[in-house]
Design a protein around this nucleic acid. Structure first.
Length: 556
RNA sequence: UGGGGCGUCGCCAAGCGGUAAGGCACCGGAUUUUGAUUCCGGCAUUCCCAGGUUCGAUCCCUGGCGCCCCAGCCA
């Protein structure tokens, strides 16, 4: 794919790995994509997936898929399945390397007892509120819990009773004994285990105590032999704790954590909370709504995995907070679709045109190229007759300066067909043009004038008696503001009221009657479209607009 | 005002002491039966600011300024 062949500039992660390989620290690198199965994946996750799988592929290593499933209160099987499907859709394969943090629960439990035995963990009886109060603030150090000094035996007994289900949710937690005065809050005796009497999506009812992220993540990395544990910036403050566990537990390997800046996209929101809200409040029609930045959404809309991968390559990886322009994503989609889609003529907002000097019953046929720059993509036949439809926007009774489409008195080319001249219009009682009359030039068959005169404008059309009907959904950005997320304001006030426009009377060339949902098309002069995989069916076609074509005219 | 991180063109991003890559956006112009594509050309005497070291600094030092993250029994 041409979009992926451009050499990529280096980034700090590649540099680190190159150095680790060069000095012999590692023979082979192992990365992992570690989602929590508590929601659906979005374009931000795609960046992480492409990074982790891409780095492994680039350096001949491997990448694991690991579910960080340590909190059964929020996780579901449905999400596990969806996440696997999205990663595959994006084009990556973890092979045999599918892992669950929950598969390590027994080992993690043993390590927790080990820490207790070393005097480095204790059972806490303080309530959640009390723990918070004892933790201190950003500027004041914390206080030690009165339960911090329990004996190893007492801690072990209590922890085992926690495990056996003797206590209700929240009654006790296991804490690491580190330093209540640490300036890094994560080191102020972090909670290691909490009691949750809930079935787990992967390991069922075997446990009622569950490890916290911090106690599971690094150790799982170590168990899997991860060499480079890549996460987002907000985990940087957790690194000392990550390393504390690796240093204080007999783990089988020593992974290293590196952080990068998460993806932010203009005109979109990415937080799980906001995405949930859009769905729950029916602002969008589900997680796979084509306007959503979820992988399910953009997939349904018609974005290709190739385009998403090209996007992830193009934006680079860094450590500074960044907001990528939506136009970068859109341009990646266009670049891919421009290469691969067959062209087709489709009239979205039909305006009837009658060619008065064209024989009533005559039907002409033209060969239309499927791709003007790629003859190998072939051609198809399109039919022409006396009555056709053109785009309402392609006609102007009083054209603005520079308009070179159909207008009274002047000539315009009907793509692949004939040159026509508008001779008159029919209006309804409101003065709206409802029909246009033309004369065609019989000597211009195919669209070229016999005398070689230049025709500036070419518009698309569809034969009225041959066209098929379809619904077309025009999607646009969900928000009107580039940063709906920014500062205090409610992001919902920036919702774009025109993020979807449904055109129910579109007219398509006959060729599209059997459109395969997996095939994308370019509707010439308009954009890229594909049949909606859920709602389109033979006889009741529904097309989604994936992205518009660039349009230098509308900018003026 | 505790700790951690970041600051190179409107948005990303290379650069790692030797005199500012690239992409998107934008602005021209050429070709065009898609106002698309393609193609040419333009677009940071300057790297948050101020000092310092050096023959030479975006890269080193010092001091400022700005922005982000952290006080879940979430990840």
């Amino acid at each position: 794919m041409s979009t992926e062949s451009v050499p990529q500039p280096s980034n700090f992660l590649r540099t680190i790995i190159e150095d680790d390989l060069a000095c012999g620290k590692h023979q082979v690198i192992v990365t992992r994509f570690p989602p929590e199965p508590n929601g659906y994946l979005h374009i931000g996750h795609a960046k992480s997936i492409c990074l982790n799988f891409g780095l492994a592929r680039h350096f001949g290593g491997r990448c694991h898929l690991r579910f960080d499933d340590t909190n059964p209160a929020k996780e579901e099987l449905e999400y596990i399945e969806s996440i696997k499907e999205s990663v595959h859709w994006l084009g990556f394969d973890w092979g045999q390397h599918l892992f669950y943090a929950s598969d390590n629960f027994e080992q993690l439990y043993q390590w927790a007892e080990y820490l207790i035995q070393q005097g480095k963990a204790y059972v806490e009886d303080l309530t959640a509120d009390e723990i918070r109060a004892y933790r201190g603030t950003l500027t004041e150090s914390g206080k030690e819990s009165p339960y911090r000094g329990r004996s190893v035996e007492e801690n072990l007994g209590l922890f085992r009773r926690m495990k056996s289900g003797e206590f209700p949710d929240g009654a006790k937690v296991l804490r690491a004994r580190i330093d209540m005065t640490a300036s890094n809050m994560n080191l102020r005796d972090p909670v290691l285990y909490r009691i949750i009497h809930a079935p787990h999506p992967h390991v069922g009812n075997t446990w009622c105590i569950y490890p916290m992220y911090d106690f599971a993540h690094g150790q799982s990395d170590a168990i899997e032999g991860i060499t480079h544990s890549i996460c987002t910036l907000e985990f940087e403050d957790h690194k000392p704790l990550y390393e504390w566990f690796l240093a204080n537990l007999p783990v089988p390997s020593q992974p290293r954590q590196y952080e990068f800046a998460r993806l932010n996209l203009t005109y979109a929101v990415m937080s799980k909370r906001k995405l949930h809200e859009l769905v729950n409040q029916h602002i969008v029609n589900g997680w796979d709504d084509p306007r959503m930045p979820t992988l399910m959404g953009i997939r349904r809309r018609g974005y290709t995995p190739e385009a998403v991968r090209a996007f992830c390559e193009r934006i680079g990886v860094g450590r500074s907070d960044s907001w990528i322009d939506m136009s970068v994503l859109e341009e990646c989609v266009r670049e891919d679709l421009n290469e691969r889609t067959p062209r087709v003529l489709a009239v979205l907002r039909p305006l009837k045109v009658v060619i008065d000097n064209y024989p009533d019953e005559l039907v002409d046929e033209f060969e239309a190229a499927n791709h003007p720059q790629k003859p190998e993509m072939g051609s198809r036949t399109i039919r022409f007759s006396r009555e056709i439809f053109i785009e309402q926007d392609d006609f102007a009774e009083a054209p603005p300066k520079g308009f070179f489409r159909m207008t009274p008195g002047s000539e315009v080319r009907l793509r692949y067909a004939y040159i026509v001249r508008c001779t008159g219009v029919v209006k309804d009682e409101n003065g709206t043009v409802i029909e246009v009359h033309c004369q065609y030039d019989p000597a211009s068959r195919g669209g070229s004038a016999a005398d070689g005169r230049k025709i500036k404008g070419t518009i698309h059309w569809v034969s009225a008696s041959h066209a098929i009907d379809a619904e077309v959904r025009l999607f646009d950005r969900l928000f009107t503001d580039p940063n709906p997320d920014r500062g205090g304001a409610d992001y919902k006030q920036f919702l774009n009221p025109h993020s979807v426009e449904v055109l129910s009377a579109a007219k398509l060339e006959q060729h599209l009657a059997t459109a395969d949902p997996e095939i994308r098309y370019q509707f010439e002069r308009q954009g890229y479209f594909r049949p909606d995989p859920l709602d389109s069916e033979p006889g009741r076609l529904v097309f989604n607009r994936i992205v518009t074509l660039k349009d230098a005219w509308s900018k003026k």
